[in-house]
Design a protein around this nucleic acid. Structure first.
Length: 591
DNA sequence: GTGAAGGGCCAC
DNA sequence: AAACGTGGCCCTTCAC
């Protein structure tokens, strides 16, 4: 592909080029950086491409003259980047957004993200790849050579091939966007694409802000966990060696306690009737009779605390900020849910000992808000079941209210057991739970479980028919959609009963789980806009929960903004069922 | 030595 | 190897 390109190194040509570019509706956009983490490296190039050619801004000379953050020479560039009327087509724009935000102090607005668009169009097909090279190949049939991506972008003089690479990379973006926009329209994915593009900037900012973890508190907790692990390991080792042939009078045969193979063998030698798997839920029933099994479970829990939630998380603290900047993937699951890694802040144990380590720094507060029963409210709205909806309308305890209906007793006469059955069933329904598993988790017999479930569906007739219709529709169309129109294509062998069952559960669950994700994403955009000009910053999200850190003096205001943003987002996707958000101001992330 | 797969378990 | 959905992380085992 032959492309004209202009390399810019001085203020007056930058101003002229930006004036020219700001007249375009759509620009390809890319950056080249010396590192992957904006806290560590330099932003070297910013590139734009229009139908006419590419403009490459070499930031090195600008930085040498007056830095990047408040260099007035870069003002035209900031205006162009933050102008929402000029669409920036970028691949994985969160990356560019973070660098621009951190080094220029401005937002990247008017995003069209070809990575996110590709993931949406793939609609859950995990065979599809989404690198720029793959996406360019798939949508416009252009082969991209990415060999320069890892080249040295900190050199004094950029090589000709680097400049050509930069230009070519940027030039593919416009035709790519045209093809993808057409495809998004064909699949009715424009609304969900906008929803995704709108929350790139909030997520970019959240990652840059990071979350504060008190290392002193964490180490204290770690010491306790370590002591528990050492004690449990020692006792378990003793108990297990009794069943190992090689054990001698002078010492015990060391067993690798983390090897389910070795542990299973040792337990079998001790006469424990071991199931095929050693998972906790299978071992639990044996724990009363066999203290060694109880000890194994104790060891496992201690080991998990120490490995998954131990020393390693402290290594994620960025020295320049003293905070943890995790990676959030905004379409982490085909349902639209986020995933999080390095570290995963969505799987921190709920126990106070862990959560309290994530605290507001001095002078700050955390505002923590979560949606109340959001998935069940979505289910109520989608099914239109009046009994289910009424249970939310009253504002009373939802599980107790549904229990009263299922067991045909007065609300005040609902027993703790009845409420607990109803609660587990309410949650299980969303995932398509069967009688067998419901029996297992409640301790009911298979027959009792079946009859309770029959009673449940007899009470919520409309919900029952919604779930059946929805399952039938999923199998017939091989698709499912969320409230925003997010699409899932299901692939299954129509002769495989198990596969059909799995597809039904997945396809029925996806619109519920996915609409919840839609709502959260909408809330993030509202929140981002409403927090402008305040001290409030988004610091974490966990599926139905949002955490904002702000100045202590502004906490009440921030809490109001957060609650309003979340409720407004919920009401856009749920009609006829109240959306309830519980918000609180706290010093630490603990209930 | 390294990477994939499998088992197990944390969150919502 | 839960006929309950979505993730990520840690460990062992096994193939290359």
């Amino acid at each position: 592909m032959e492309v004209y390109s202009q390399l810019i190194t001085d203020a007056s040509s930058l101003a002229a080029a930006c004036t020219e570019l700001s007249g375009e509706e759509v620009l390809g956009f890319d950056t080249e950086t010396t590192e992957l983490d904006p806290h560590r490296g330099d932003l070297r190039l910013v590139q734009f491409s229009s139908g006419k050619g590419a403009v490459i801004v070499d930031l090195k000379p600008f930085k040498e003259r007056g830095g990047l953050a408040d260099n007035p020479e870069l003002e035209p560039l900031r205006r162009l980047i933050s102008d929402p009327k000029v669409t920036k087509v970028a691949h994985n724009s969160k990356f560019d957004a973070k660098w621009v935000r951190y080094h220029f102090g401005c937002e990247l607005n008017g995003i069209f993200d070809t990575y996110l668009a590709s993931v949406l169009i793939a609609a859950g097909d995990s065979d599809r790849r989404h690198s720029l090279a793959d996406v360019a190949q798939f949508f416009v049939g252009i082969e991209l050579d990415k060999s320069e991506q890892v080249s040295d972008w900190s050199a004094a003089e950029l090589s000709q091939s680097q400049i050509e690479y930069a230009a070519r990379d940027a030039a593919v973006m416009k035709p790519l966007r045209d093809q993808m926009a057409e495809r998004l329209a064909l699949d009715d994915l424009e609304a969900v694409a906008q929803l995704e593009f709108d929350c790139v900037m909030p997520i970019a900012e959240m990652e840059l802000t990071g979350i504060y973890l008190d290392p002193v508190r964490w180490r204290e907790q770690l010491e306790t966990a370590r002591a528990a692990q050492v004690k449990a390991a020692d006792q378990l080792q003793d108990m297990l060696s009794a069943g190992v042939a090689q054990a001698t009078l002078f010492g015990r045969a060391e067993i690798n306690l983390d090897s389910q193979q070795q542990v299973s063998d040792a337990l079998r030698n001790l006469g424990v009737p071991m199931p095929d798997s050693t998972r906790a839920w299978l071992l639990q029933p044996l724990a009363d009779e066999y203290p060694v099994v109880q000890k194994l479970l104790e060891y496992r829990a201690a080991q998990k605390s120490l490995t998954s939630f131990g020393e390693n998380i402290l290594e994620f603290i960025e020295p320049t900020t003293g905070r943890i900047h995790a990676d959030f993937r905004q379409i982490g699951a085909p349902t639209g849910r986020f995933s999080c890694s390095n570290p995963n802040l969505q799987q921190i144990p709920h126990e106070k000992e862990y959560r309290r380590c994530f605290r507001a720094p001095d002078g700050k507060k955390l505002v923590i808000a979560d949606y109340s029963q959001i998935e069940l409210r979505i289910l109520a709205a989608r099914s239109g079941d009046q009994n289910f909806i009424d249970a939310f309308m009253s504002g009373a305890d939802f599980h107790a209210t549904t229990a009263a209906q299922i067991f045909k007793v007065k609300p005040e006469d609902v027993t703790a057991d009845q409420r607990s059955f109803a609660k587990r069933l309410n949650f299980g329904i969303v995932y398509g739970v069967g009688a067998q598993r419901f029996a297992m988790m409640t301790g009911l017999s298979q027959t009792e479980a079946e009859s309770t479930m029959r009673q449940y569906f007899a009470t919520f007739r409309q919900l029952d028919s919604y779930l059946r219709d929805s399952a039938r529709e999923v199998i017939a169309s091989r698709t499912a959609r969320t409230g925003s129109g997010r699409l899932l294509r299901l692939r299954f062998d129509e002769n495989d009963r198990q596969a059909i069952g799995a597809a039904k559960r997945y396809g029925v669950n996806m619109p519920i789980q996915g609409t919840s994700a839609d709502i959260l994403k909408r809330a993030l955009r509202h929140l981002h806009d409403a927090l402008q000009g305040t001290s409030g910053k988004l610091v974490n999200i966990v599926h139905d929960e949002i955490i904002v850190e702000c100045d202590a003096a502004e906490a009440e205001h921030a809490a109001q903004i957060l609650e309003r943003s979340m409720v407004a987002a919920g009401e856009e996707y749920i009609a006829g069922v109240p959306v309830v958000v519980d918000a609180k101001i706290a010093d630490e992330w603990a209930k």
